[in-house]
Write a protein that binds this DNA or RNA. Sequence first.
DNA 1: CAGTTAAGATTACAAATGTAATCTTAACTC
DNA 2: GAGTTAAGATTACATTTGTAATCTTAACTG
Lengths: 138, 138
Amino acid sequence: MTEISNAEFEVLEALWQNYPASANDIIAKLNESASTNANSADDKKQEKQWHDKTVKTLLNRLVKKQAISFEKQQRHYLYSPLLEREAYTLKESKSLIERMFSGKLAPLVAGFAKQNDLNKDDISALKSLISDWEKNND
Amino acid sequence: MTEISNAEFEVLEALWQNYPASANDIIAKLNESASTNANSADDKKQEKQWHDKTVKTLLNRLVKKQAISFEKQQRHYLYSPLLEREAYTLKESKSLIERMFSGKLAPLVAGFAKQNDLNKDDISALKSLISDWEKNND
DNA sequence: CAGTTAAGATTACAAATGTAATCTTAACTC
DNA sequence: GAGTTAAGATTACATTTGTAATCTTAACTG
């Protein structure tokens, strides 16, 4: 399967959050976070606005790439992902770790640790993952 | 600083391994792994061969992007990275984790665990990172 | 039913990317 | 010193990507 671009990924992301969905559902979802914290004093992020035509194009490309499917519903389509989010994010994670850390996970985590980007929650999540792993691997 | 593409990253990688380096050094390094396990029975990977002109183009782009510098040496240049590898890989890791896991490291690790992509070494590396972290964060 | 909408299809177009080939010119060779 | 090399500079070109605008046409509206 061809690569999914960043913009395409964001559209897929919206679809994963709720599907099947019409193009309009997806466009709405993409622009949603923007309106959520609208005109608040903290204009920190200025969420991007997705243009209707842009999203349609990306949906088309995703269909061509066989990342999503659609079924005709009266006048419009209902889209669904063909890719599982977990499978996709795992593949991307592995690919990055392969490219930058010779396939080893630890150096990535070490980078975070070094920069003090780990907090108590991360640590306890990691601990529990480790103990699960140990349970299953004597 | 502009984004560094995949191909550019591979060139940078070669440079990080040994610098300052001439264009030819870099081209040689890039094609090296290919020859290392040449004509062995296991033609598993078929390492890509880098074309001289291609690498030169990428070096040029990296200079333009201010990712590397060069100093004139008689007839040719000696290139050096302007970016630290660690800083760059950390930035990319954080960016991926931000995009796919809401900035949380644990879900990425969890994905690996689920797929049984963690081994004893990974686990002990993680454990030691955790205990270091705990040492510094009471 | 004729006109208007609006969904999706098609086309557009600049920038980035992968992958080189050609051009210039300073440096080496005889 | 004249000719040849070879390094880097410039140009090339197809594809992908981000970002839309325009075209078609089936469906809604009055």
